[in-house]
Simulated assay, not measured.
Amino acid sequence: MFNQNYEQIESMLLNLCLVGLFLLMGMAVHDVMKKNDVPMVGRVVAYGVLGLGAAGFLIKGIIQVFWHAQGISG
C-alpha cells in the first residue's frame, strides 16, 4: 500500500514543508522590519512580494488538481 501512495504522500509532505517555509520567511521578514522601523510602504511591498510567492504555489497546486482530474499528466 505504501508503494501505491508514495507519490501522493511525497506531494503532501512537500506542500506542508513549503507552507512551513513561507511561515518562517514571513516571521523573519516581520522581525527584521519591526527592529528597523520600516515605513508602512516598505512593509506593504515586502508582505506583498511574499504573499504573491505563496499565491503562486497555491495557484500551481490548484492547476495541478484540475489537470489530474481531466487526465492531463504534467
Rank of each mutant, 00 (worst) to 15 (best):
M1F: 07
F2W: 12
F2P: 07
N3Y: 14
N3G: 14
N3Q: 14
Q4C: 12
Q4A: 13
Q4E: 14
Q4V: 13
Q4K: 13
Q4L: 15
N5T: 11
N5D: 10
N5W: 11
Y6P: 02
Y6G: 11
Y6C: 14
Y6M: 13
E7I: 08
E7R: 11
E7W: 08
Q8D: 08
I9V: 09
I9F: 07
I9Q: 03
E10M: 11
E10Y: 09
E10H: 09
M12H: 08
L13H: 09
L13Q: 10
L13P: 05
L14C: 12
C17H: 15
C17M: 15
C17A: 15
L18E: 05
L18C: 08
L18I: 09
V19M: 08
V19I: 12
V19H: 08
G20T: 04
L21F: 10
L21R: 09
F22Q: 00
F22V: 04
L23H: 10
M25L: 07
M25G: 06
G26M: 00
M27C: 06
A28C: 09
A28H: 09
A28Y: 07
V29G: 01
V29I: 14
V29L: 05
H30M: 05
M33E: 00
M33L: 05
M33G: 00
M33F: 00
M33H: 03
M33D: 01
K34L: 05
K35I: 01
K35F: 02
K35P: 02
K35C: 03
D37E: 04
V38K: 00
V38R: 02
P39C: 03
M40K: 08
M40G: 01
M40Y: 04
M40V: 10
M40N: 11
V41F: 07
G42R: 05
G42C: 03
R43H: 03
R43V: 02
V44E: 00
V44T: 01
V45Y: 03
A46R: 02
Y47T: 01
G48N: 02
G48L: 06
V49P: 02
V49I: 14
V49G: 03
L50V: 03
L50P: 00
G51K: 04
L52C: 14
L52A: 11
L52W: 11
G53I: 06
G53V: 03
A54N: 05
A54R: 05
A55F: 12
A55N: 07
G56H: 05
G56D: 06
G56P: 02
L58V: 10
I59V: 15
K60D: 13
K60M: 14
K60E: 14
G61T: 04
G61F: 06
I62L: 12
I63W: 06
Q64T: 14
F66S: 13
F66D: 12
F66I: 15
F66R: 09
F66K: 09
F66P: 06
W67I: 12
H68E: 15
H68A: 13
H68M: 14
A69C: 06
Q70K: 13
Q70E: 11
Q70M: 15
G71N: 01
G71I: 00
G71H: 00
G71K: 04
I72P: 02
S73R: 12
S73D: 13
G74L: 15
G74N: 14
G74D: 13
G74S: 15
G74E: 13
